[in-house]
Write a protein that binds this DNA or RNA. Structure first.
Length: 569
RNA sequence: CGGGGUGUAGCGCAGCCUGGUUAGCGCACCUGUUUUGGGAACAGGUGGCCGGAGGUUCGAAUCCUCUCACCCCGACCA
């Protein structure tokens, strides 16, 4: 490809609406352009990178025994009503009507469609297991799209679904998919980790996320400094704290704490650390108020809380509700001396406290010498808090938790029978009896992985593409297009490389050398072949590596093999 | 949805507070000449419904009202 023919509008200045580096660089390198919030067009170079990644995904999916299908982007509402998600999914689901006023959505994920397909076409256990996948444009009407391709509304995703007659078969495919994902991200040269995850709105029994490590990642990852345990903060398990018997705790007593409604205020006022406090929050769980207790230095993990309470809707209560439930303004709630009967859910660490402090359910008043178990008894005690740095590891005896940040690029789930039951998708098993399919589902964010690759591979000059994703491997740069000899040599080199099936872009533009170097570095071609004075004077071609800026000089006869070696690594 | 902010040439911005010739600057783009190993120089040019609608005024990019879009923080999320 000649650069002079390529639509690649590089931009010198950083666009002011691009927050993260991958977004900035993709815009600046002329790879994507924004059409609306969270919706992008891909220009030739950007699309080529997407295609490179998709090809890797296809190869590994096929190798894992999955078959490619192509499902519709627009899905009739009935299917979603059948699974119950038409109601559950909320505003994120983009709904629309056709000319007959029939309801549809743009699929944000395709469990319903694939389950419908399989229930129509698969009758016998002999046809199982079956793995199908597609690469499709999806739409989720995110509340706040941001970070370019990282969190768009329209986005490319590879989603695979597997169908099984028994759990052992699902386990085998789940493991095979996990290996396929490892292969995919390894081939892209990414530094990633597999972490335990919450299965979220998709549902299911167990799931793991593939996280590309990056300081700008949206997800916090808890990992043990001793064993191999790693989990998304949302799902990271916390080891129960040792319980203090609290034998010596005196009877509780109230103490005036004027205007000290926040934990920091009260700790400062009383001169006791936050660890001695019981933080009391009022939540609305399916429209019923619940008192939620965590230690003063901990935060509530709403995902865990949701699981414990088994509820769909969960949110912090309005100030008015707090008043009616506790009889005091926000900031003075506590589990002791409550005016009305309310459900109380306590984090396990709260029960480990002795001689604790909490609100007195009275304005400007707290209670000291509270002994959990003696002075109040929660209905539920469970792990409902976020893990923090330094927590003892749940899985091993000696480790403690550290925290890292990552970008979720893949997620695999054991769905079980959730969708097959809802959609009554059944087959005949070996005993001739009807049985619902056992399912798994496996997603990879296409654009997001490409963005993550940039987050992980860039410098002050621009992108440094891993060879596997680079739009072209080699950029042939002719430094002076007014020099007919130089152009003739460059044309010849371009032709030779092309004939040798090297993916090459030929920067034949009548631009100054500086512009060509800057663009080459911005776009991030892994290898530059620079054709300038040295070629004419000494017959030496300069090969420059983007990642290290290392330069090698070779004669023309060695150029092709030198490049092929570099591309192969 | 709550809080904050921005819409002026393809991009980045000034002008607005305090209304008044033909709306300006840098980059990009076009023409010519000179340049070509790190985002060149000179000269000449193209390009604007000042986001949209309504209002106030002799007169509106500027003041007022409404509206749309986008961005940031928060809640949400494979």
């Amino acid at each position: 490809m000649r650069f002079s023919q390529l639509l690649c509008p590089t931009v010198r200045e950083t666009p002011n609406d691009a927050e993260v580096i991958s977004h900035q660089l993709m815009i600046r390198a002329g790879m994507i352009r924004k059409v609306a919030a969270g919706i992008y067009s891909f220009l030739p170079l950007g699309y080529r990178i997407i295609q490179k990644f998709e090809a890797i995904v296809r190869e590994e999916m096929n190798r894992a025994g999955a078959q490619e299908v192509f499902l519709p982007a627009v899905v009739p509402a009935e299917l979603w009503e059948e699974s119950g998600r038409w109601q559950l999914y909320g505003k994120e689901l983009l709904r629309l009507r056709d000319r007959h006023n029939k309801e549809f959505c743009i699929g944000p994920t395709h469990e319903e469609v694939i389950t419908d397909l399989v229930r129509q076409t698969v009758r016998s256990y002999r046809q199982l297991p079956l793995s199908l996948y597609q690469i499709q444009t999806k739409f989720r009407d995110e509340i706040r799209p941001r970070f370019g391709l990282m969190r768009g509304r329209e986005f490319g995703m590879k989603d695979a679904y597997s169908f099984h007659a028994n759990w052992e078969s699902l386990d085998a495919t789940y493991a095979a998919m996990s290996r396929a994902y490892e292969a995919i991200f390894k081939r892209c040269g990414l530094d990633f980790r597999i972490v335990e995850a919450d299965s979220g709105a998709i549902g299911g029994d167990s799931s793991a996320e593939f996280m590309v490590m990056a300081a700008t990642g949206e997800d916090a990852i808890i990992h043990c400094n001793t064993c191999s345990y790693a989990a998304n903060l949302e799902a990271a398990k916390v080891r129960p704290s040792p319980v203090d018997s609290g034998d010596k705790t005196p009877a509780y007593a109230s103490i005036l704490t004027p205007n000290a409604g926040k934990i920091e205020d009260v700790t400062a006022f009383l001169g006791r650390p936050a660890e001695h406090f019981i933080k009391t929050l009022v939540y609305m769980a399916n429209e019923v108020p619940v008192l939620v207790l965590v230690r003063g230095d901990h935060t509530v993990n709403e995902i865990k809380l949701r699981h414990v309470l088994d509820c769909q809707e969960l949110s912090l209560a309005e100030d008015e509700t707090v008043k009616s439930v506790t009889g005091a303004p926000v900031g003075f709630a506590g589990p002791v001396a409550l005016p009305a009967a309310v459900r109380i859910v306590a984090d396990a660490a709260v029960m480990g406290l002795a001689d604790a402090v909490s609100g007195a359910n009275q304005k400007d008043t707290h209670l000291t010498h509270i002994q959990p178990g003696r002075d109040f008894v929660p209905e539920i005690v469970a792990d409902i808090r976020d893990a923090i740095v330094g927590d003892a590891c749940y899985h091993c005896d000696s480790g403690t938790y550290q925290i890292l940040r990552g970008i979720e690029v893949g997620h695999i789930f054991k769905l079980g029978e959730k969708y097959s039951q809802a959609l009554n998708a059944v087959f005949l098993n070996a005993e001739g009896k009807e049985q619902t399919f056992i399912m798994g589902c496996y997603g990879v964010g296409i654009g997001r992985t490409v963005a993550a690759a940039i987050e992980q591979n860039h410098d002050a000059d621009g992108i440094i593409w891993p060879m596997a994703l680079a739009p072209y491997h080699v950029d042939v740069i002719v430094l002076n297009t007014k020099d007919a000899d130089l152009v003739a040599i460059s044309d010849r080199i371009y032709q030779t490389l092309t004939e040798n099936r090297i993916e090459v872009i030929y920067d034949d533009r009548a631009e100054s050398a500086g512009i060509k170097f800057k663009d080459a570095e911005l776009i991030g071609f892994p290898i530059q072949v620079i054709i300038g004075k040295k070629v004419k004077e000494e017959g030496l071609f300069e090969i420059k590596l983007r990642a290290t800026k290392e330069v090698r000089l070779v004669v023309e006869a060695d150029l092709v093999s030198a490049l092929q070696d570099l591309i192969r690594n």
